[in-house]
């Protein structure tokens, strides 16, 4: 097998150099380097638990080869917000009771963040489509939809205030 090489990744704002084999996925190198907030659910792009934002787009990190991501910027759920600086999506998910087992949530918040970045006032149908690659088995999605609507509203109001 071809030897590993160091690739450059900016993860949640921090520049990293990570060793990656040619067949390593972005999911593997993120998790092997401490980013276990990126979850592994199927390793074939069916479930969306491993979704991250790669240069502004939501991707399944299990389907993305690490070498292809060389030089890119990655954002995980932890880069979207933290307890000290929560993203409105995280606050809304917590308040709306959108979280049950929580395993799908890092991927779903990633997908929702990309949606709201592109579309600050999504319809129900926009949300459904944006989350169609993210499986959740616990919640039936209803509280996830309502949390996204709520976060979008909070963000629109915030934007208005700042504008």
């Amino acid at each position: 097998m071809e030897t590993s090489k160091a690739i450059k990744l900016k993860v949640n704002g921090k520049q990293l150099e990570l060793l990656a084999a040619p067949n390593s996925t972005l999911l593997e190198i993120l998790r092997n380097n401490g980013h276990v907030e990126v979850k592994c659910g199927c390793e074939k792009g069916d479930c969306g638990a491993c979704a991250v934002i790669l240069d502004g787009e939501a991707v399944d990190s299990c389907l993305t080869l690490a070498w292809i991501a060389d030089g890119s910027e990655v954002q995980t759920v932890k880069g979207i917000g933290t307890e000290a600086t929560p993203h409105p999506l995280q606050t809304a998910f917590i308040e709306e009771g959108s979280v049950q087992c929580g395993y799908c949530i890092p991927g779903i918040i990633v997908a929702a963040k990309v949606l709201l970045d592109e579309n600050p006032d999504p319809t129900d149908s926009d949300i459904r489509v944006a989350l169609s690659g993210n499986l959740c088995r616990c919640t039936g999605y209803t509280r996830i939809f309502s949390a996204i609507h709520k976060a979008a509203q909070v963000m629109r109001e915030g934007a208005q205030k700042n504008g």
Partner: peptide, 21 residues
């Protein structure tokens, strides 16, 4: 009362460790 579940925040921030982590 619809109180916020104690486990919800860390799950939403990506802090919760599952067995495979």
């Amino acid at each position: 009362k619809p109180l916020i579940r104690t486990d919800a925040p860390n799950k939403a921030y990506g802090n919760t460790l599952y067995a495979g982590d």
